[in-house]
C-alpha cells in the first residue's frame, strides 16, 4: 500500500462515541454532518478493495460502535484530500483532509460526505 488511491476505493469511518449508538443518527435515519468535523483530520480505514465484512471484522477488533462508508471519489468531488497514514494500530489508517493545507473539512464538504455516506454497521 502507498499513498495512491483510486476513485472507487472505499473508506470506512468509525462513528464515536461507540457506546452511544444514536449520537449522530438523524430522525430520518441519515447521518449528521457533525460526524465529519475533526480539526485533526478525519480518521478512516482505507478498504484497499477488501470486502465490507472483512473490513468490519478488522475494525471490530478495536471498536464496538457503528461504521459508515464513503468512496474516495466522494472526497475528491468536493476538493478533499485522502492521505494514507498507517499507524501502529492499523496498516490501513488514512485521513480525509479539507485541503492540502487544512485538515478540517469545510461545512460544504461535511454535508456532502454525510449525504453520500452509507451506514455499513449500525449498533442502534
Amino acid at each position: 500500500m502507498d499513498n495512491s488511491f483510486k476513485n472507487d476505493e472505499k473508506l470506512y469511518r468509525a462513528v464515536y462515541p461507540p457506546n452511544i449508538s444514536s449520537m449522530y443518527w438523524k430522525s430520518d435515519g441519515s447521518v449528521s454532518s457533525a460526524a465529519f468535523a475533526d480539526p485533526n483530520g478525519l480518521s478512516v480505514e482505507r478498504g484497499y478493495y477488501r470486502k465490507d465484512e472483512d473490513v468490519v471484522s478488522a475494525m471490530q477488533m478495536r471498536f464496538t460502535g457503528s461504521i459508515i462508508r464513503v468512496y474516495v471519489k466522494n472526497c475528491r468531488d468536493i476538493g478533499a484530500e485522502v492521505r494514507y497514514l498507517p499507524s501502529n494500530n492499523s496498516p490501513y489508517h488514512s485521513e480525509i483532509h479539507g485541503s492540502a493545507t487544512t485538515p478540517l473539512l469545510s461545512k460544504t464538504q461535511r454535508r456532502y460526505l454525510a449525504e453520500k455516506a452509507s451506514i455499513i454497521l449500525s449498533s442502534l
Binding site: 443518527w25 438523524k26 430522525s27 435515519g29 451506514i119 449500525s122 449498533s123 442502534l124
Partner: peptide, 22 residues
C-alpha cells in the same frame, strides 16, 4: 436499513425504559 433505523430512532423517543448506551 435506513427506514429501519428511522423507525428505531422514533421508538427511542417513546421508550420510557432507559437502556445502557441508548
Amino acid at each position: 436499513e435506513q427506514l429501519k433505523r428511522a423507525s428505531a430512532y422514533n421508538d427511542l423517543l417513546t421508550d420510557g425504559i432507559g437502556k445502557k448506551g441508548k
